[in-house]
Write a protein that binds this DNA or RNA. Structure first.
Lengths: 225, 225
DNA sequence: CAGAATCCCATTCGATACTG
DNA sequence: CAGTATCGAATGGGATTCTG
């Protein structure tokens, strides 16, 4: 007697367990699946943009995962309006609701000594780390409208006294805009305390003081493992 | 050219990504790994106890996962004091720190319509769901010391005005003790609103009123997917 | 460029049998 | 009870090719 195969792909096939954690792992536990959700967390992306954020994933696997996540209700595929050809992948409301879980996993991982923060990092990962590590107590009342242009991807961060919102939106008009060719450089400054002066490729446009206050409000947790 | 294999087992071999979420998935994203952590969350267990909580896992895979999780620093194997033979597996401080992430994943999964809460459930899963779904606002100031004996496993829950602690400890002396032969029966009462009177196999010992107040303070989130 | 289809090998899994 | 050893089957995933 074999266990039921059920949907044959995507979910419901592994654990047969009512535990929510088990169900979550069936949906987002396959290799790459959670990273796809991470990449989409700040807004819809096209196939090739997704690949760019996940070096190492193959077209086949990305196609399979996108189909699985769509079947599970995590994301939908949406056709772009006529002028722009092609389509984008966008999280559903439930997909966006995974953000808390993703952040808690990231926070947990950051507590391990084995976690290597010097590896490559996608722009979306960097932004997600800001959301995770933002501490209103450190922000000390900061309210700001910041832009980040990292590896060609633009994000807009809105800092309020007790919240931080980030979305994929052009940075024009922000109080301060940080331009960097790659995310690890920004991480070296924010988390590794490397002064901006030592990072020739990173440029700040606008109010550097506001940006510095933001950087001071983002901090990694202590290591416990 | 191939990607680096690195540790050959356990972690660091998949994504090569500084993103904490990616690292977390390398540690606990393998099949069954997170469920092992879940089972251990309330205290150390032996090999066979772990198998009992995860119907479907084979001895081989359990052995492999335990070795991987030990190598990653999530758990340690500890020899029992002489009177009791054998050894147990116990989470490290970092392993216990995964609880928040596990709960957030469970909360997220519970928001999906596709989540089937009628599947089998281990006692540890049930307790974890209590921790996840406990709402101090619904508890309305309840302070209590409760026992749960489910499928032969005993847990002790301490309810405070704004917290709920649970650990694997004999239930003797609690204000109320709920005895049930299997976890799904308890879930049917707590989350499915099936009256205790209809569950002949479930028995309450002690102050049923206190238990009822606890049950009223545990609630599933609304469905959004 | 987006993504489906095919091929093929490495890994992984589950079942069973076996051992201290 | 607590694993280990072995083996056949299933799956996974990279490379390549093909299509709109």
């Amino acid at each position: 007697m074999k266990l039921p195969k059920e949907t044959k792909s995507g979910h419901g096939k592994w654990y047969g367990d009512a535990c929510g954690t088990a169900f979550a792992m069936e949906v987002i536990g396959e290799r790459w699946a959670l990273l796809i959700v991470r990449e989409l967390m700040f807004g819809a992306l096209r196939f090739s943009d997704l690949r760019a954020g996940m070096p190492g994933i193959s077209a086949k696997v990305l196609t399979e995962r996108l189909a699985g996540l769509e079947a599970a209700g995590v994301l939908i595929r949406r056709k772009l309006a006529p002028p722009a050809a092609g389509q984008v992948y966008e999280l559903t409301a439930w997909g966006y609701a995974a953000e808390t879980a993703i952040m808690e996993m990231g926070r947990w991982a950051a507590m391990s000594c084995a976690h290597d923060p010097t590896l490559p990092l996608s722009p979306a990962s960097l932004m997600m780390s800001f959301r995770t590590m933002f501490d209103p107590a450190l922000a000390d009342g900061l309210e700001a409208d910041l832009g980040f242009v990292v590896a060609g991807q633009a994000f807009r961060a809105t800092v309020r006294t007790d919240s931080l919102k980030i979305r994929r939106t052009p940075a024009e008009g922000a109080q301060a805009i940080l331009h960097a060719p790659a995310a690890p450089l920004v991480a070296a400054h924010v988390y590794g305390d490397v002064p901006l002066a030592e990072l020739a490729a990173v440029r700040v446009e606008g109010d550097a003081t506001v940006l510095a206050r933001f950087v001071a409000s983002v901090k990694l947790p202590p290591k416990i493992g």
